[in-house]
Write a protein that binds this DNA or RNA. Structure first.
Lengths: 166, 166
DNA sequence: TGCAACTTCCAAATAATATTGAAAGTATTG
DNA sequence: CAATACTTTCAATATTATTTGGAAGTTGCA
């Protein structure tokens, strides 16, 4: 496969992949463009590579910076800003995981913790508390695992896990 | 908190949570309704609990059955079908994980495997292959971990992982 | 077989989300 | 400080996803 075609496919696929997760298509495509670019890109570069508007490019670049997936870089003698993606895939995974954990998982764990104490003494209430408690236990465990696995040494964790579990 | 209020909150939250993942809001809400119902529900029950149309209820019930999160059940002497959610949270987690792995992760792993062989000898091509290879490695590991963790004994895995990694 | 009682499908309507582009804002330079 | 080069914002617009409701299909029973 030609390099150009490969990059294109990657950008499309990464965009679709992102879309299925909380990340929107453009944001994932901008990320993909930066990931496969050997040089940092300017806003204009991104606009023209992906055929998107200035506002869109800017918005998604900012969001990627929020997610710690992209950094602003300065080029000597250049006034405008350039952007480059974090290329260490373990760091990418860590940042995405932590962000989603914080935004989605943690609030759910908190809510389930409250719900498992809902009032009522009849069978229905007991069944509900059991379901809530089970879900709370499950989500807490997942949360704890993700916390641990993204705290310091992701690479070690995943390598260890894939060995231990062979 | 009152039981009724608790159930409502759960249905809303589970719906929003699902929305952030590949599952749409109604599907997640239907699932939540069934999860917290002590009795199996009919299509009509679901429609009125959530204020959604027949078509919508039906479509999402079917989708939940596809995902193995819900079963049809027959009630003696009743013609219409009733639906009940799988209540074992480990099974729920397993089924959701496997489904999303199959739909999203596996195709990405496959694509990255191809892309890491893209043509070209210059620095740009080499950098691209490196990025693709790194991502392929990462996604393969995650895929392998999920495969293992959902194959037979999820509970053991998560317990083990959360202990080992303490 | 024909008639309910129910389920499924699907085109059209609606709602939610993403994108645009021009205007406003901000920093840098001469 | 004014001109310039750029970034950010946001209301309008376009796109995409979801939901509806009625028509078509199925099933079981008298």
């Amino acid at each position: 496969m030609e390099l150009h075609e490969a990059k294109d496919k990657f950008i499309q696929a990464w965009g679709a992949f992102g879309g299925q997760w909380g990340i929107n298509r453009s944001m994932a495509q901008v990320h993909a463009s930066l990931l496969v670019s050997p040089e940092p890109l300017s806003t204009e570069d991104v606009m023209e590579q992906l055929n998107i508007s200035r506002g869109n490019a800017n918005m998604n670049l900012r969001a990627l910076i929020d997610w710690h997936l992209v950094d602003k870089v300065l080029k000597a003698g250049e006034r405008r800003e350039f952007f480059q993606a974090e290329k260490d895939v373990w760091k990418i995974a860590t940042h995405i995981t932590r962000e989603r954990k914080k935004r989605e998982l943690e609030p759910m764990v908190r809510l389930l913790g409250e719900l498992k104490q809902a009032a009522g003494t009849n069978a229905e209430a007991k069944a509900f508390r059991q379901t809530a408690a089970d879900l709370h236990d499950l989500t807490s465990r997942v949360d704890a695992m993700l916390e641990r696995s993204t705290r310091s040494d992701v690479q070690w964790f995943l390598k260890a896990a894939s060995t231990i579990l062979r």
